[in-house]
Amino acid sequence: MRTDVQNFAVANLRRRPEPVEVGGFVAGFDPSTKEPYLNYATPLAGCRPTDADVAALIGAFRERGLLPRLEFAPDAVPEVAPALRRAGFVTEATHSYLVCTPEALTPPAGPGVPVVETPGSDEEYAAVDAALSAAFGGEFPPSAEGVARLRRTEDSGGATRFVRAPGGLVAGAGTCSPPAEGTSELAGVGTRPEFRGRGVAGAVTAALTAALFDRGAESVWLEASGDGSRRVYERLGYRVSGTRLYLRLP
């Protein structure tokens, strides 16, 4: 059983703008947004929560006007999900996660591979933010806060990478968090619909993965949203290594 991904989740939330530890959980809050995907909790190693612990966690979300929500690897903390379900939490999603190590990384090769760049100017970061919004159907509207988060990721030891498109657009992009507990999470790789099928996601993923290995990560992990993206990641050297569970309180 791998524990590095769950240990990473704890360490990553502890470096959020407003981390709170309560009842055997750590919650990472971002006061700039009420977006549930940016305000969530995860259990600490060895967590065996009581009903009172879960109630205290719910209270930390409610007092901020936020939806109680958790992300975690259930195999690493087997007593957590049953305690949360007793309190009314329901499954939002269950995803497999894939892990890549330096010796397994196989970047795409050939003359048609898109050129991957690192944003530098405010305009480039804003274009990346807009491209990711378009890639995910506008679920996350472009914003100054989104631009700031992208720049903060790069400046804090993680990575933001993109593929440029004609006319000043960004065809696709993604981010990778700063390493913690020996690993790093690659997340939010997206391609504008009109540029899909051209190898953009694979090129961005490979570049991000290599960048974090250069910065000392012993592994990089990610979650695949479907069979198509999973095949892209597997071609790059990623392998399925476990499951992550998303729970929320309706």
Rank of each mutant, 00 (worst) to 15 (best):
T3N: 13
T3Y: 11
R15F: 00
R16W: 14
G23P: 01
D30S: 12
S32I: 11
T33F: 06
T33A: 06
Y40L: 14
L44E: 11
T50L: 06
A52I: 09
A52E: 15
A55V: 12
A55T: 15
A55P: 05
A56L: 12
G65I: 03
L70A: 04
V80I: 08
L84S: 02
G88A: 08
T94D: 00
Y97L: 03
Y97S: 00
C100V: 12
T106V: 15
G110P: 04
P111N: 13
V113M: 07
V113Q: 02
V115M: 13
E117M: 13
P119C: 10
P119T: 02
D122F: 03
Y125Q: 08
A126G: 03
D129A: 15
A130W: 07
A131N: 05
S133W: 07
G137M: 05
P142T: 10
E145N: 14
V147L: 03
R149P: 05
L150W: 02
R151N: 01
T153G: 05
S156K: 11
T160G: 04
P166S: 12
P166D: 14
G172P: 04
P179V: 04
A180S: 11
G182H: 00
L186I: 12
L186G: 10
A187E: 13
A187W: 14
G188E: 08
G188W: 14
G190A: 11
T191E: 11
R196F: 04
V200P: 01
V200N: 04
G202S: 02
A207M: 06
F213R: 05
V220M: 04
A224H: 02
S225H: 06
S229R: 02
R230G: 09
R230Y: 02
R230M: 11
L236R: 03
Y238M: 04
Y238P: 03
S241L: 09
T243D: 15
T243I: 15
L245T: 08
L249G: 09
